[in-house]
């Protein structure tokens, strides 16, 4: 029994790392630009497909696939930002919301037409050896996911807190007008945060291909969870998102393992928890209260 519990907790924690990887880029972008980017999920999906194709068609290692996806999605993000998102940033909140929803619908359905809605499994050999701890086993791919997820998280945190661009990002998000007066190119800072978020989405897409299935609709499932996570932790708060992922993945994982038929609705519990948290703390667990 205890082994089963530990096993379930470890698997849930590796899911937490995956969610954290998806949420890491999103919370950076949302924290800076204040845009709910629904297309982030589709960026993750594209990263998953790219990693999958690179492995199945060309036999390239998923490590390479992740890096390539990061670069590809960074380029796509820059194109999307310059193409139309920069203009939308100046519009009302509902227009921004609908714009990214429209982009998400567009990419999702193009992917369905191009690659069919069927799920695929990559079946790559494990990237790391399986860990065996007194009867409890953790597959190597899950360890790889946890590792890369954490690296991604630390990278986002470091970019935001310890680089010159990070300082500009925080300034620009607090007060874009003042930041512009102080000589910061706000538009460029926003674009940069969007591109970094896109790169993180691409890399986390590679992680999705490793431990989940590869399917056009996978992005929608993930992005909704990522939104719950970043709201739980406080929008723009990177360590908060890490704790949010752990809360979400643990409730979801443990419900689906230990409640009969909980697999199909475990995530619902997580959303109820989010609503309860927001009642007590309207800006999430670690968010600055009274956001603008």
């Amino acid at each position: 029994m205890t082994t089963a519990v530990i096993q379930a907790v470890l698997l849930a924690l590796s899911m937490a790392a995956l969610y954290a990887a998806v949420a890491a880029g999103l919370t950076l972008t949302v924290g800076v630009t204040r845009i709910i980017n629904f297309a982030h999920g589709e960026f993750v999906m594209l990263g998953a497909f790219l990693t999958y194709w690179l492995y199945t068609r060309f036999g390239l290692s998923p490590w390479f696939g992740m890096a390539a996806s990061g670069v590809a999605l960074a380029i796509l993000s820059a194109a999307v930002y310059r193409g139309f998102l920069a203009r939308v940033l100046k519009q009302d909140e509902h227009n921004q919301l609908l714009a990214t929803l429209g982009l998400s619908i567009l990419i999702l359905n193009l992917a369905i037409i191009a690659w069919s809605p069927d799920p695929r499994v990559m079946q790559a050999p494990p990237l790391l050896p399986t860990l065996n701890l007194g009867g409890v086993t953790v597959p190597g791919n899950n360890i790889a996911v946890a590792l890369v997820g954490l690296i991604l998280f630390v990278a986002m945190y470091a970019i935001r807190n310890y680089t010159r661009y990070g300082t500009q990002m925080r300034f620009a998000s607090d007060d874009p007008t003042l930041a512009a007066h102080a000589g910061i190119n706000v538009d460029r800072v926003f674009e940069l945060s969007f591109v970094i978020g896109g790169a993180a989405a691409g890399v986390s897409g590679g992680l999705v291909a490793l431990v989940l299935y590869v399917q056009p609709t996978i992005g929608v499932d993930l992005v909704i969870r990522a939104f719950a996570i970043i709201a739980l932790g406080g929008l723009g708060n990177i360590p908060g998102a890490l704790i949010g992922s752990a809360i979400l993945a643990l409730t979801e994982g443990l419900t689906s393992t230990f409640v009969p038929q909980g697999g199909s609705w475990g995530f619902g519990i997580a959303f109820v928890i989010l609503l309860l948290v927001l009642v007590v703390r309207p800006s999430g667990l670690f968010g600055k209260q009274a956001h603008p």
Partner: peptide, 16 residues
């Protein structure tokens, strides 16, 4: 709830 939090909360509500 302000802005994005409100939107995310309503989305979560419909899923719940």
């Amino acid at each position: 709830l302000r802005r994005l939090y409100f939107t995310i909360a309503t989305l979560s509500f419909s899923l719940s």
